[in-house]
Computed example of a mutant assay.
Amino acid sequence: MIGIADAEPIPFPGFDRLILDYAELQAVMSEQRFASWRTALASVMGIYAITDMRDGRQYVGKADGAQNICQRWSEYAVTGHGGNIELKSLTPSTFRFSLLRVFDPSTPASVVDAAESHFKEALGTRKYGLNRN
């Protein structure tokens, strides 16, 4: 009998080098070879961008408080939209996920909120993108 060995672990590339399409996000959140990635993403809160590669529109979101990046992105991997109204009508297979800034879990929520607001303003995601707030 021939068995298939577990896939070789893939080293985490670092927070500032992480760009995933939707299929890659699903793999990262479910496959054993990406366990170190989930550990790293679970260790930080942060601000992330989702870009719809069909038209370039972006959504800026945050994971803070009791929720870390791994938890938040796991929701996207399952639903495709994470509960965000503007994303629900789109096809997640064209989404690209990236981190804009990471924070230590002890960072006050007000600091994370200010950073999220800054990126929404800087990238114009309220006026031209996929953020409603």
Rank of each mutant, 00 (worst) to 15 (best):
I50A: 11
I50N: 06
I50S: 05
I50C: 14
I50P: 02
T51S: 05
T51M: 13
T51E: 13
T51P: 05
T51W: 04
D52V: 01
D52L: 00
D52T: 02
D52P: 03
D52A: 03
D52E: 08
D52F: 02
M53S: 14
R54K: 12
R54A: 06
R54V: 12
R54W: 05
R54S: 10
R54F: 03
D55T: 01
D55R: 00
D55E: 13
D55A: 01
G56W: 09
G56S: 08
G56A: 09
G56C: 09
R57N: 12
R57H: 14
R57D: 11
R57M: 15
Q58N: 11
Q58S: 09
Q58T: 10
Q58P: 06
Q58G: 13
Y59P: 01
Y59A: 01
Y59I: 00
Y59R: 03
Y59N: 02
V60H: 02
V60S: 02
V60A: 03
V60Y: 03
V60M: 05
V60I: 15
G61I: 05
G61E: 07
G61Y: 06
G61K: 08
K62H: 07
K62W: 12
K62N: 09
K62T: 12
A63K: 05
A63T: 04
A63E: 03
A63Y: 03
A63D: 03
D64H: 14
D64I: 09
D64K: 15
D64R: 12
G65R: 15
G65D: 06
G65V: 07
G65M: 06
G65P: 07
G65S: 07
A66F: 09
A66M: 07
A66I: 14
A66E: 14
A66L: 08
A66C: 09
Q67E: 13
Q67R: 15
N68E: 10
N68I: 07
N68D: 12
N68A: 08
N68S: 11
N68C: 12
N68G: 14
N68W: 04
I69K: 01
I69L: 06
I69F: 01
I69V: 07
I69R: 01
I69S: 00
C70R: 05
C70F: 04
C70P: 02
C70T: 02
Q71F: 10
Q71W: 07
Q71T: 11
Q71H: 10
R72C: 01
R72T: 01
R72V: 01
W73N: 00
W73H: 02
W73Q: 02
W73M: 00
W73D: 02
W73C: 01
W73I: 00
S74N: 12
S74G: 11
S74W: 01
S74M: 05
S74Y: 05
E75D: 13
E75S: 13
E75C: 11
E75P: 05
Y76E: 05
Y76R: 04
Y76I: 04
Y76A: 03
Y76V: 03
A77N: 06
A77T: 06
A77M: 10
V78T: 15
V78S: 15
V78A: 15
V78F: 15
T79F: 09
G80N: 10
G80W: 10
G80M: 11
G80R: 13
G80A: 11
G80V: 10
H81I: 04
H81E: 13
H81C: 14
G82S: 14
G82E: 05
G82M: 05
G82N: 10
G82R: 06
